[in-house]
Amino acid sequence: MLLNSVLKAYGETASAAGGETDKYLTMLCADILGRLPKSFDMEEAKNKYPVEYSESMNTVLVQEMERFNKLYRAISTSLITMQRAIVGLVAMSPALEDFSNSLVLGRIPNSWTGVSYPSLKNLPNYVADFVARMEFLHTWFEQGKPKTYWISGFFFTQAFLTGVKQNFARKYTIPIDKLTFDFTILKTESSEISPLDGAYVYGLFTDGARWDRRAGKLAELFPKILQDVMPLIWLIPIKFEDYNPGKRYTCPVYKTSLRKGTLSTTGHSTNYVLPILLDTDMRTSHWIKRSVALLCQLD
């Protein structure tokens, strides 16, 4: 809080410095705009991936594209307006002043966070993350359904999880509300084949523990290493009556390390994703005291 307050004070004086700041902002806006991939053609996407009874992932992809297009427009419009304001074609409003301060301090601007997925990254890392997510969807659109899914790359992760369940429910004619997930942690980072049922997902990080690949169990962190990368996780839809956590640790998955969110209109938390069962030699209370969780992205 102290450092943020100091930065806020210095940020306001920095924006008044004139020429040097204007030159930096112009360069920064041009750099970000130059790195953004093209937006999604929604008409083409709906034609190539129509709504199908047997394939819910088509709907998931199209809806994700719409959400990212909305954020893409917010980012590109604000950067272009900033460029115009610097050369005097647009009046400098308080909102633009606030936007320029965020750029100078390397923070995600407020005009972006309103339409963005949760993120605690600084500005350069946020832009790189956004570009990577867009490219993931572009690859999916061009090459077809992926064998493995980057679960952290989704804007609304619950839609993807529902899509996985829905495919299973329609394939075996089981009501979707009678399904839940079981989990198998694989020993590999990638796969050239997709599972018959469910989905392979990657992109999760451990927080408070590490995953022992050889033993296939939760283990204590190595010194000075705070996070570990999880291998592929197989999400397996099963009936509630077949669900048996056993002695596995019920590990919560969060989108960011803040571990708190607000309840959205869909009834889902903006930060919490789902619980994943992880094998362990120790009692689950040990990991609960460690506050062990999985994160979709690091800070």
Rank of each mutant, 00 (worst) to 15 (best):
V51H: 01
L294K: 09
S194H: 05
K70P: 00
R107F: 11
T162P: 00
G11Q: 11
R283A: 06
D212F: 01
T59L: 13
G163Q: 06
L204V: 05
D177V: 02
T284G: 03
Y117N: 04
K178C: 10
A128G: 05
C251F: 00
P237Y: 03
S15G: 04
L204W: 04
L295Y: 01
I288R: 10
T206I: 07
S15T: 06
E12S: 14
E20L: 14
Y200W: 06
S194L: 11
K217D: 01
F181L: 04
L263T: 15
S191N: 09
R290V: 00
R133M: 07
Y243F: 15
M27A: 14
N110I: 00
A17Q: 12
L294F: 10
P50T: 08
V90N: 05
S54I: 06
P109K: 05
V292G: 03
V87Y: 13
R290W: 03
T13L: 11
S152A: 15
Y202S: 14
A132P: 02
F141G: 01
Y149E: 02
T265S: 14
G203L: 06
T21M: 11
D228G: 11
S285R: 11
Y254M: 08
A16R: 14
A209Y: 02
Y172I: 03
K239V: 08
P175F: 11
F155I: 05
T188W: 01
P109Y: 03
L120R: 02
A45Q: 00
D228R: 04
L7A: 10
T250L: 14
P124N: 05
A215C: 06
P223C: 02
E192C: 07
R107I: 10
T256L: 07
M1G: 15
M82H: 09
R210F: 11
K171N: 15
T13C: 06
A199R: 05
I176T: 13
A293L: 06
T139A: 10
D41F: 09
K70C: 00
R210W: 07
L298S: 07
W234N: 12
T184E: 15
E64T: 11
D207F: 01
M65Q: 15
S191V: 09
I108K: 06
C296Y: 01
M65A: 09
V131C: 09
N101G: 03
L221T: 10
D281T: 13
K239E: 15
L218W: 06
M57V: 08
T184S: 12
S285F: 01
V90K: 13
F141L: 09
Q63H: 02
R290A: 13
C29Q: 02
L196D: 15
Y117A: 09
L179G: 06
F40D: 02
E12K: 14
L7W: 04
G18N: 14
G11M: 05
W211Y: 15
T270W: 05
G144M: 05
R35C: 01
T26N: 12
L186A: 10
S269R: 08
D299W: 02
I236A: 09
H268T: 03
G261D: 02
L105E: 12
F141D: 01
R170I: 04
